[in-house]
Write a protein that binds this DNA or RNA. Structure first.
Length: 909
RNA sequence: GGGCGGUUAGCUCAGCUGGUAGAGCACUGUGUUCACAUCGCAGGGGUCACUGGUUCGAGUCCAGUACCGCCCACCA
């Protein structure tokens, strides 16, 4: 016996255990040897992570697709795994060390630290795997991979070496985005531009050879800057070549304040006469634009900041270029050195003000680059780093999407993809971290680099190069986490080995991911997949929304607005959460999740549960010998057709990634068709005298419930699997629902049955509606007279008499003339009359009829206008025209009947 | 500065290729009929942001306007 209500907590774990025990998620079952493969790689969550709403959405959608295709007979591989998430993980462990007051990373040394991270990973790294299971994900966990597994690491090294040899990875000294807190370079994508209220300082740079006088503007040139502290590294002032204000100064020099360095005034088109003062200070070592200007003009590049963002003025020839070191300068260096960059800003502004070198200070709104992990202000910094020639790799990746080898859903994301790929910059892949794939590059005594798959290979190369064995030093840096993620679709399948899985499941079928990582991940998988495998990594990319809170805010711990999916699972069950997310997946950009929605779908699961309970109580058991095509009872023929239509709708929607439509079709069919109507309508049959009809109905009810479980399973796997098992299964029926075959179209629709049951439903609805409107007590049974009934109506009414009596709460049904003082309902050709004189208010009924007449009347007027319009008649397609005419004649018939009804009523007065 | 998206019932949102505006929640009335009160039945509520255009016909296509949001970009 089923419990009275569905309690997900009681069964979910057990159900999942059953699936795992049956190894039901594993691909390659003998039964599917000839089947077409269907492969999906999971976007690997960070090992540091726990399940958040974004994961819940992402993995629900994948699981829906995967379960759908598995049921459709495909040989499904859903490849799971986790990502080592370099910076994030390293930060977590470092924080842990700090909290426990243990020696920090540097104190314990690289080897010990990495060991510690691994230890942490083993202990708590896979919590998210358990959480994905709670969500119901049917990944093949036996194939769980981690980006730092030996196999995947080997793939990383091989790709690095191959790209290096092809000239597509190279080392370069240029400005990078430097995070002064994490002490590493980061890629452009990891920089967030944050709008900040700042200042624009207008500095006076004295012109060489003219005695500086604050009141004489010809003795100096004004430069505007948002970063006065970098002036210590200035090596030029640039003006636009066509700027008449400054033309005469080009070629002259200024004396850099405080420092005393002599720097040129140069003409460069980078300088924008509209901005600031029109003259701009050039600091090639601390600004991306200035770096380019510096290269064009051969300017020195003077670094004035330490890696951690403190002033660092080395009194070496670089810094003092063009000046003799002098006591004053030495004093300045002593004062400035080691001052943190923001304090240095104040210090320098103050000193300039004192010397009359500050023209003015304006408030200024501008964007300031921040590290997305540390949130520290990023410093452009001149360093040696490794780069991927992304522009070259991007070309085939662009073409593949243009040719349609990979398709984005929704399509408009392709625009975003193209735009970024076409303007792609070199990808900085080295990170000054410890946790990650150490770069397979070794340096000889003279600094020559040897890139090889391992130390031995590098040593061999070096030996050949130097003619003797030398000791090599390995590059200390690790690779950007996304480098290994980019290989995910093939590295998880065993590449570089030629595994059977690689041959069978690459390219994968669909990638499901959020739009926030199109650049980070999707684009890079495209580039690497095409380069390494010479084939796109996936055919479709389904881009889903971000989940936000009820107010549309991005969920974040600091805002405290995080909804934990596990809380929702605990309260409402995994099925309810999954169904909610699928039902809301249509939204283009974001999903505002509210728990009332989840609660509503929990109720839906309960509804289904109770429908199953009804089936159980009424002995509706699936029968192996039941043939839907042989059903005779109209009601059964109708629901079989409805079931077919629902199956078609769900199938079609899922094929088109229209998750919300698929969920909606299920919801509507199960609740509003099967429960609201079918189960109510069959009650009289089940308790009726016709044993054959009752038996057929029991079998049909069970069969259609099975169909519903099948169709709903991808969305609500737990409750459906549980019910599948509990409803005494028919022989030969697949014992696990998740492996059962998806409903196929068999053509059970029957127009006659649809018409008859449609009539029945309208009959009941109309009577109920009028009863309610007329305030007829719900419990009161009233007689009903059908006037003007056709033969068909008479037949239908007698066939369904018991049902009508029960559901419309009627005392009896008679045929004849509409009695006086009755409430009258127009139903097709007939009039349903409820003789309620004495119970109801004749006046109110008269008003009701008049309202109805008005409504139909205005519809007729509208249709008339349309049909009288010559243009409509001549230009609208025939079927539309016909439809309108038909609608009009129907409306006119109804109007006539209503008029008659009103007359009869008034006659009674 | 570019690009993209949003504006539909009190709230959160559906509405694919243009042809009588939908769902969930909330609300109102009513009901303890033997699956379900996590429920049933009935109902109220929308000039689909605004302006113009295309069309026989526009929530749906086009142009523009106004707010809101996101992404990208080196703007001193």
């Amino acid at each position: 016996m089923l419990d009275k209500t569905y309690q997900p907590q009681k069964i979910e774990d057990a159900i999942y255990g059953t699936w795992e025990k049956a190894k039901a998620f594993a691909p390659g079952a003998p039964a599917r040897a000839g089947a077409k493969p269907f492969a999906v790689v999971i976007p690997p969550p960070n090992v540091t992570g726990s399940l958040h709403m974004g994961h819940a959405l992402n993995n629900t959608l994948q699981d829906v697709l995967v379960r759908f295709e598995r049921m459709r007979g495909r040989d499904v591989l859903w490849q799971p795994g986790t990502d080592h998430a370099g910076i994030a993980t390293q930060m977590v462990v470092e924080r842990q060390l700090m909290e426990r007051q243990e020696p920090n990373r540097r104190a314990m040394g690289r080897e010990a630290f990495i060991k510690r991270v691994w230890q942490w990973k083993e202990e708590s790294g896979n919590t998210i795997v358990g959480q994905l299971k709670r969500l119901g994900c049917s990944c093949d966990w036996s194939r769980l991979r981690f980006t730092m597994d030996e196999g995947l690491s080997r793939a990383v090294r091989k790709v690095f070496v191959d790209l290096y040899r092809a000239g597509l990875i190279y080392k370069d000294k240029r400005l990078v985005n430097w995070d002064p807190e994490l002490l590493t370079a980061i890629s452009d994508l990891e920089v967030e531009q944050i709008e900040t209220k700042g200042h624009l300082w207008h500095l006076r740079y004295p012109i060489e050879g003219r005695r500086f006088d604050p009141s004489d503007s010809s003795t100096y040139i004004v430069v505007a800057t948002t970063r006065p502290e970098t002036m210590l590294g200035d090596t030029a002032v640039a003006v636009h070549p066509d700027d008449e204000r400054y033309k005469h100064l080009v070629g002259k020099h200024v004396i850099l304040p405080l420092v005393g360095r002599r720097i040129p005034i140069i003409a460069d088109e980078y300088s924008d006469p509209e901005k600031g003062s029109g003259a701009v200070k050039i600091t090639p070592a601390h600004d991306f634009n200035d770096f380019e200007v510096g290269k064009r003009h051969g300017l020195p590049m003077i670094n004035v900041l330490s890696p951690d963002g403190k002033l660092l003025l080395d009194p070496n020839p670089d810094f003092v270029q063009g000046i003799e070191p002098n006591p004053e300068l030495r004093a300045l260096i002593l004062e400035f050195n080691g001052v943190f960059r923001f304090a240095a800003r104040k210090l320098i502004v103050h000193q300039l003000e004192e010397k009359g070198l500050m023209e003015k200070i304006e408030l200024h709104l501008h964007t300031v680059p921040h590290g997305d992990r540390s949130n520290a202000v990023i410093e452009p910094r001149l360093t040696d780093q490794w780069y991927v020639d992304a522009a070259t790799l991007a070309k085939p990746a662009i073409d593949a999407v243009k040719r349609g080898n990979t398709t984005f859903v929704p399509k408009n994301w392709e625009t975003t993809y193209f735009h970024w790929m076409q303007t792609i910059q070199p990808w900085c892949i080295s990170r000054q971290l410890w946790w990650g794939h150490q770069i397979p590059a070794w340096y000889g005594p003279d600094g020559k680099v040897f890139v090889a798959k391992d130390a031995a290979a590098a040593a061999a190369e070096a030996k050949q190069h130097y003619g003797k064995s030398v000791s090599l030093k390995r590059d200390e840096d690790v690779l950007d986490t996304w480098f290994s993620s980019a290989l995910w679709p093939f590295s998880t399948l065993g590449w570089p080995d030629k595994t059977p899985e690689l041959a069978r499941y690459y390219p994968t079928d669909v990638l499901v991911t959020g739009f926030d990582i199109i650049f980070f991940w999707v684009a890079r998988m495209m580039m690497m997949g095409l380069y390494v495998m010479e084939e796109v990594p996936f055919r479709d990319v389904y881009i889903h929304a971000l989940v936000r809170d009820e107010k549309g805010q991005k969920m974040s711990k600091s805002k405290g607005n995080v909804i934990d999916p596990l809380d929702l699972i605990n309260t409402y069950g995994a099925d309810a959460l999954r169904f909610t997310l699928a039902a809301m997946a249509a939204q283009g950009r974001d999903i505002k999740l509210s728990s009332s929605r989840v609660e509503g779908y929990r109720n839906f699961a309960t509804k289904l549960w109770n429908a199953a309970r009804f089936a159980e109580l009424n002995n509706c058991v699936p029968r192996a010998d039941f043939d839907p095509a042989s059903a005779k009872v109209t009601l059964n023929r109708w629901i079989l057709g409805e079931s077919e239509r629902a199956a078609a709708a769900v199938t079609e929607a899922l094929q088109a990634f229209r998750f919300n439509d698929a969920a909606g079709a299920n919801y509507h069919f199960i609740w509003h068709v099967y429960c609201d109507w079918y189960l109510e309508l069959i009650k009289p049959i089940l308790s009726g005298a016709d044993q054959d009809a009752a038996a057929e109905t029991r079998a049909t009810a069970a069969y259609v419930l099975d169909q519903a479980l099948l169709l709903l399973h991808p969305f609500m796997p737990f409750v459906t699997e549980e019910l599948w098992a509990k409803l005494a299964p028919a022989e030969g029926r697949q014992s696990l629902l998740l492996l059962a075959p998806w409903p196929m179209h068999r053509g059970h629709e029957n127009a006659q049955a649809d018409a008859e049951i449609g009539w029945l439903i309208r009959f009941i609805s109309e009577v109920r509606s009028v009863r309610s409107e007329m305030n007829v007590p719900a419990g009161a049974k009233v007689p009903l007279v059908i006037a003007g009934a056709s033969e068909e109506t008479r037949a239908r009414a007698s066939r369904h008499e018991e049902t009508l009596l029960r559901l419309a709460r009627l005392e009896k049904i008679e045929f004849g003339a509409s009695p006086h003082g009755a409430v009258q309902i127009v139903l097709d050709e007939a009039v349903l009359a409820l003789p309620l004189a004495g119970i109801i208010d004749i006046d109110a009924e008269s008003k009701r009829l008049k309202r109805e007449i008005d409504k139909v009347g205005s519809e007729i007027r509208q249709l008339d206008a349309k049909l009288a319009n010559e243009k409509f008649v001549s230009r609208a397609p025939e079927h539309v025209d016909e439809e309108q005419r038909e609608r009009k004649s129907e409306a006119e018939a109804v109007a006539a009947k209503l008029e008659q009804a009103l007359k009869r009523l008034e006659a009674a007065l």
